[in-house]
Design a protein around this nucleic acid. Structure first.
Lengths: 345, 345
DNA sequence: CAAGGTTGTCAAAGCGCTTTGGAATGTCGC
DNA sequence: GCGACATTCCAAAGCGCTTTGACAACCTTG
C-alpha cells in the first residue's frame, strides 16, 4: 500500500492525502479524519526512503561503535545506552542505525554516513582527549552530541557527561578518610577522556590527603572482569600492597572481588573497594542492599537525555550548544571499612 | 556531490557513471577507471535513500530488541552479537538498524518496518516457544533468520542455535558423575525457547542418573547477577541445600559466586558450579585459565554467522531454509569437584 | 559493400514521497 | 449580484538514484 493507491482509493489526490496525514492545515478536518481512518485500515506507513528523498532528512540517527581491533572488545554499557536512547528516538519518529567499525577507519565511516545521507546526526561515543572526530564532524556538517567530553577541544560542542573528576576525587577522599593510605586505582583505558578525568580526581585527592601517588598502584586497561582480576592480583603481590581499590566499573569490580575472595581477603574488612557504577540492567549493584560502595550514574538515562539533545540539535543545527554535567550519586555498600591496622594482627 | 554533478563534471551521462560504479559490463574499462577515480577524488557515495528508492532494497537489516517493560532489562549478549553481525553486514554493504520496543507492541514494529520499507530483513532474537513472530513475518513477507529456535513452529524457517539441550544434559551428567545428587538449575526465563531446552536437558540427565528432580532446586528468571545471587542464597537456605549449581550465563554465575563467597563456601570444593558461557568480550571466563567449568559458545561468532545467513536469504527469499546447530565446547575450570561427603566433616 | 553484431553511450521514465503554485468552490459584505 | 477572500483540493515538479530502450559508431562477416 502506497500513497498513490491510498489516494486513488479515497478519490483524493496524493497531495491531499499526504497533507492530511502530516497534519497540514490546508485540509478540512472531515477529510483528514477520513484519510487517517483509511490509512489505519490499510496499515499505510509512508515509505521511509521516499519520504527521506523528498524531505532531505533521513529521520535516522547513527551510532558508530568502534571495536578495538585487538581485543574485539565491546563496551558493556552499549546495550543499556541504546535502550535509553532508543526510547527517545522512537517517541520522535527516529530510527537508530548502528555501525561497527575498527578504530582505524572511523573517520571514513563518519564521512561516508554523511555523504550517503544515511543519518541526520550521530552520537559520539567514548571521546578521547583532543578527539579528532569533533572537528571532522564540524567540517563535514554532520550534527552530533558527545557522550562525555573531550579535553583540549577549543570549539564549542554539545555534550552530556558525568562529573568523573568529582566522583573519583570524592571516592578517594572517602577512602582516605577511612584511614587508607595505599589506594589503588583500577582505571579504564587512559586514552579515554573519562579515564583521564577520573585519574585526575584520584590524584588530586591523594595529594590533598598527603598520600603518596604510587604508579605501581595505578593501572589502565579495558574494563573487563579479567582485567580487574589480573590487576588486583598483581597489586596484592607487591611488597606494599594496597588496602583499598578504586575501580572504573562494576564489571572490573567483579574481577577485583574474585581476586580478593581467592586470597581469602574479606572485602570491606581486609580490603576496601569503591567502584563507579553505570547501573547496568544486568549487573546491578545489589539493588536496595548495595554491595559495593559506589558512585553511580545511569547510562540508560544518559542515553535518553543525549538522544533528546541530538534531536534538538538536528532541529536547529546552528543554535547554541548545550551541555549537562551530571553528578554521580553516592551509595554506601558493604565493600568499604576502616583501613586495617598495619602493625596489628 | 551527487550523481548529476559528478557526471556533468566528467562529461558523461548519469547512466554511464552509475553503471561504471556498479560494475556493469556495458562500460569500457577506460571510462570506468576514469569514473572510479573521480568518484574517489570527490568522495562520492550514492545517496542511500535514492538508491533504495530506485532499487527497492534498503540494504539495511533490522534488529528488534524487546526490553522487558518491567525491568528495563537489556540482554547482556546484545553488544557482542551486534559486533559480530555488524562486521558481516559491513562487508556486504548492509546497514544495521536497531529498534527498541516494549514487548507488547512488537508485532506492530515488524509490520511497520515492512510497510515503511525500512529494512530488507530482520534477525529474530530470543525466540519463545511457539513464537508468533515467525508466522507474522512469513505473512507480511519480511525475510528473517532466528537466533535460536522456536519449539512448536511447524513451518520451516532458517535458524542458528546452540545445542542447549545437549550442553545442559552433559553438564548435569558431569556433575552427577562427580557424585552430586542435589544439583540446582539457575535457568533463564522459561518463556524463552533456549531456557526450555536447557531445562529439558537438565531433567533428562537427572532422570538418567536416577536423581530426584526437585522443583525447589530449579529457578527461572532474567539472567542478572542479582538473580544468580538471590537464587543461590535461597537454595542454600533450604533444609537440603544443593551441592552443585548449573547456571544459564556467566553473569548469573558471578552472582552465584558472590553468594558462595559470602557464606564462606569454597567454590569447586564445598559447592560446584557449572555455567553456560556466551564468551562475552567484557566478561570472559578467565582466558587460558578458565575459572568456571563451562559449556561455551561465542555469541559474537553466532552474530556473524546469522548475519551471513540472513543476507543469503534476502538474496534468495524463496530458497530452501538453512539451519546450523552449534555444539557448545566443554571447558574445565576450577569451579567443579567431587561432591562433598555428606556424612563426613 | 551491405547486412548483421558488438560496444559504448545516452535520454527519459520511474521509484514513492513532499511541496509549490494554481485552480475551483464556497462564503461574505455591500 | 458581484468582487474579495477563504477554504479545499489538485497537477506537476523534484528529491538522487537505477534501469529500460534506443542509438550511434565501430567491427565483422559473406
Amino acid at each position: 500500500m502506497n500513497l498513490k493507491e491510498l489516494s486513488s482509493l479515497l478519490g483524493l489526490s496524493q497531495t491531499t492525502v499526504s497533507r492530511a496525514l502530516n497534519g497540514y492545515p490546508e485540509v478540512s478536518e472531515k477529510t483528514r479524519a477520513r484519510v487517517v481512518k483509511a490509512a489505519q485500515a490499510h496499515a499505510y506507513s509512508p515509505n521511509t526512503r521516499a519520504q527521506g528523498l523528498a524531505t532531505g532528512h533521513s529521520k535516522c540517527i547513527g551510532h558508530v561503535i568502534s571495536v578495538s581491533d585487538s581485543a574485539e572488545m565491546v563496551n558493556p554499557i552499549f546495550g543499556d545506552f541504546m535502550a535509553g536512547a532508543g526510547e527517545t528516538y522512537a517517541a520522535h519518529g527516529y530510527d537508530m542505525m548502528v555501525t561497527r567499525v575498527g578504530t582505524k577507519d572511523e573517520a571514513d565511516t563518519y564521512r561516508n554516513l554523511k555523504a550517503r545521507g544515511a543519518v541526520d546526526g550521530v552520537v559520539v561515543h567514548a571521546p578521547r582527549r583532543n578527539d579528532s572526530r569533533l572537528a571532522l564532524l564540524d567540517k563535514i556538517g554532520l550534527p552530533y552530541v558527545v557522550h562525555g567530553r573531550s579535553t583540549g577541544i577549543k570549539a564549542g560542542y554539545s555534550w552530556l557527561d558525568v562529573n568523573n573528576t568529582r566522583a573519583f576525587s570524592e571516592a578517594t577522599s572517602y577512602l582516605a578518610g577511612l584511614g587508607h593510605s595505599r589506594i589503588a586505582l583500577i582505571n579504564g583505558p587512559e586514552v579515554m577522556d573519562f579515564a583521564i578525568r577520573r585519574r585526575a580526581g584520584y590524584e588530586s585527592s591523594m595529594r590533598f590527603a598527603g598520600l603518596r601517588i604510587d604508579p605501581a598502584l595505578m593501572s589502565t586497561g579495558e574494563m573487563t572482569e579479567a582485567y580487574g582480576y589480573a590487576e588486583t592480583n598483581a597489586m596484592l603481590s607487591l611488597k606494599q600492597p594496597p588496602t583499598a581499590f578504586l575501580a572504573a566499573s562494576i564489571i572490573c569490580s567483579a574481577g577485583i572481588r574474585r581476586a580478593l575472595d581467592e586470597r581469602g581477603l574479606r572485602i570491606g574488612k581486609d580490603v576496601s573497594v569503591v567502584t563507579f557504577d553505570d547501573c547496568l540492567s544486568y549487573f546491578g549493584n545489589g539493588g536496595d542492599r548495595p554491595v559495593f560502595t559506589a558512585w553511580q550514574s545511569s547510562v540508560r538515562l544518559a542515553g535518553g537525555a543525549l538522544a533528546q539533545m541530538l534531536i534538538d540539535r538536528i532541529r536547529s543545527p546552528h543554535g547554541p550548544h548545550v551541555s549537562e554535567l551530571w553528578e554521580a550519586e553516592f551509595v554506601k555498600g558493604t565493600s568499604t571499612g576502616p583501613a586495617p591496622d598495619q602493625f596489628g594482627d
